[in-house]
Design a protein around this nucleic acid. Sequence first.
DNA 1: CATCGTCTAGACAAACTCTGGACAAATCCA
DNA 2: TGGATTTGTCCAGAGTTTGTCTAGACGATG
Lengths: 315, 315
Amino acid sequence: MTSPNGQHGPDIPRHAIALVSRRTGINQLLLRAWERRYEVTAPGRTATGRRLYSDADIEKLLLLRQLTDVGHRIGDVAHLPVADLRTLAAENAGTPATAPPGAADAVDVGRLLDQAIEAVRSLDHLALEQLFDRASVALSRPLLRRDLIVPLMVRIGELWRCGELRVAQEHMASAIVRSFLTTLNSRHLIPEGAPTLIVATPVGQWHELGALMAVSHALEAGWDVLYLGPNLPAEEIAGAAASRRARAVLLNLVYPAADPAVDSELRQLRRLLDPDTLLLVSGQAATSHGPLLAELGARMIRDPDSFDLALNSIQ
Amino acid sequence: MTSPNGQHGPDIPRHAIALVSRRTGINQLLLRAWERRYEVTAPGRTATGRRLYSDADIEKLLLLRQLTDVGHRIGDVAHLPVADLRTLAAENAGTPATAPPGAADAVDVGRLLDQAIEAVRSLDHLALEQLFDRASVALSRPLLRRDLIVPLMVRIGELWRCGELRVAQEHMASAIVRSFLTTLNSRHLIPEGAPTLIVATPVGQWHELGALMAVSHALEAGWDVLYLGPNLPAEEIAGAAASRRARAVLLNLVYPAADPAVDSELRQLRRLLDPDTLLLVSGQAATSHGPLLAELGARMIRDPDSFDLALNSIQ
DNA sequence: CATCGTCTAGACAAACTCTGGACAAATCCA
DNA sequence: TGGATTTGTCCAGAGTTTGTCTAGACGATG
């Protein structure tokens, strides 16, 4: 894959700062600040002085971001060699540190996706797990969800519907994705005094991947998230919200249902919740309840951005 | 893994106090107080005087926390060398099986359990997570399951039945236990050429904690485990077993059901499976299917030991 | 040409951490 | 029971760290 003359290799400076910022989730200002203060990167420059980052730079930045997310201070880890960053990050993730596969290859998300599908097809759970491990060092958390996990599950759903995948394969993929998300979520530093969000899935809805991704997102946004799992009656959710004085409740709806039961659960939930507690509804099926949500004053979450917006509006 | 120049290794001071506090569940104030009063740690310092703890420090603190949780007074154990702390913690862990040697020790794990119940009661997910983190330092994996997780879930079940706990609390506990087990399972290295075990739960059975504990156990016994999650039809399980050439299939049954559907699923599974593939059935409800299991030549798994026996018999 | 993205250097405020003393509840001991 | 001890928590004031912001300039883009 990598040509011998070094046309692509991980050390060739070629990425503009905007791209690096997007991919790592690190503010441009902060990228420059880290460079100025700790010399975490030494990007090349264009003839006119603009930064050009290499793939290796991106990997290092992602590692640093992961480490600061779990509580390491940037000043403590900034000067460590990349190998140390990897082991440190691996300790946290709980996965044994794997040999770096070369960031250059991992960046091709489309190809990752194909490989993932292939692993699912052959029920190769090890391959799928390793693939996620690799991806998590090449993509920021939000991108991991948006560009790998969501498309993967959508694709698996399609293949299943057209008979190309069996239920067992879909189940395996779900189990592994769930495990991966859970592991990512498990070591999150929750800031003092963070507001509480409750996440659940209503009665009859068992799919929890969407809810788990919402948990990730909210954790990254600095919330204290109480995850109650799938299939929970409205009164239980409301009770938990009251007891924990939650600022918001997020309900993830998966099934394309115009299931009337969901309507009544939503109504009941809104009625039982403290009026000051915001009700958020996400998931593929959220749109089909649009009018009801408007009536109840519940907020529909269509995508990560609208989620951020909603979270910020009450924080 | 560890470079000879000591770039990592357990004694390098590198963790900030916030991180240590979070990992050990010990308040920052208390960390400093213990250091001041008993010199339990002697963290390195940054150039500006901030504490930097080593991995060894963290382990010691976790042990101390574990011991104080169980009733030891900090002043009594603070000055002990780490080796002694370890044996002390291990003693505590082992006692419930054997006759209580001293009345003092009889409390131990029971007290952890009480704290866990309390955390569940108040929907305090952070406390519960930290409790598991701490427990996992002092207890071996098998003991963790036998003495903490299983009793905890049993107890929660009882409290729920008699109306002292709500569904939301049970859900939270399940979610956290699941997350914890998942994280433990993800750190496993699978030996070359390990035989494959498939673990699942039959149609209609959604509880997966038992299955996940079986996964842990089998991983520790050196198996390559393909976990398919809950609620899977017999033909799917059989298909997966064939495609992966599994040596054995484990089905976990939770519901006390004399559900006839389970019987037929079991029959069908046995019929579809390769005759050389061993069928194992575990879970509380396994016993109620005793005769059928005998008829099918399926092996009933009542406890960890019989599981080991079964695994060894085919490995 | 206007707009946008990026550059440098300095400035700030919020959050974090430090020390050392103090306090109240729980526990122990006579 | 009452006093002493232990132990977790708290405070105030000072210094540090870190993410964000500003201002003015220049190149890229259409």
